[in-house]
Write a protein that binds this DNA or RNA. Sequence first.
DNA 1: CCTTGACACCTAGCTTTCCGATGCATAGGG
DNA 2: CCCTATGCATCGGAAAGCTAGGTGTCAAGG
Lengths: 112, 112
Amino acid sequence: MKGQALKGHLDLLLLAVVSDGPKHGYAVIEELKVRSGDAFDLPEGTVYPALHRLERSGYLSSEWTVSSGRRRRNYHLTKKGQKAAGEQRRSWDEFTHAMTGVLRGAQWAPTT
Amino acid sequence: MKGQALKGHLDLLLLAVVSDGPKHGYAVIEELKVRSGDAFDLPEGTVYPALHRLERSGYLSSEWTVSSGRRRRNYHLTKKGQKAAGEQRRSWDEFTHAMTGVLRGAQWAPTT
DNA sequence: CCTTGACACCTAGCTTTCCGATGCATAGGG
DNA sequence: CCCTATGCATCGGAAAGCTAGGTGTCAAGG
């Protein structure tokens, strides 16, 4: 997938992945790659700042852990994060619905 | 619909609407509102610069027209624009597919 | 006549987001 | 010992969208 197509929807992706169980940043990246069928291969410079952002917003919470000498910051969803995830999910559905409405009827669109 | 969810997908929307037949900016805004069921109510400051961008890129072409004293810039899709529209449409499909893959399986997501 | 609102266009500047580049550190295999 | 994979972080640039402001026409109402 070509660059920055996920503009504005990254937060939802991250919340979705973490909602499956606590994960550290690197693992989040891998999980996104797997679940999207290699479509989302996000650079660290995208994901780490986003996780920080979500924590600052109170949607995620984290603690340091150490596993065989490697330090990891483990993120888990907060109550507030769960609520936000649900809202953003609904938002996403509305968005795709609206897009479909606009896209339907254009010549190049395979008819309904 | 909360702001800026259409980051990166605005071009596709505009190309789709214009591909239905030449339109001027104001009409494009109205058409988007109608087709999206009021979900997309885009400010002029969003649409006009985007149309200019698309014209600079060679996807749209325009001429001034005057109708009862009112001047309008009428946009129509170019060959190049048609091609781009098709590509972006495919891109959108891939994107939603990938999103669905990630979203599926999260707790708050209604099962399959 | 004058104001209001719909129509119709435009731009400057702000903010946010994503990403490329770069840096640090550890573990394990060759 | 070096290279790769793992794992984290930040800085700066480039876009995109929006706010806020501006111009001008026309029709309707007070």
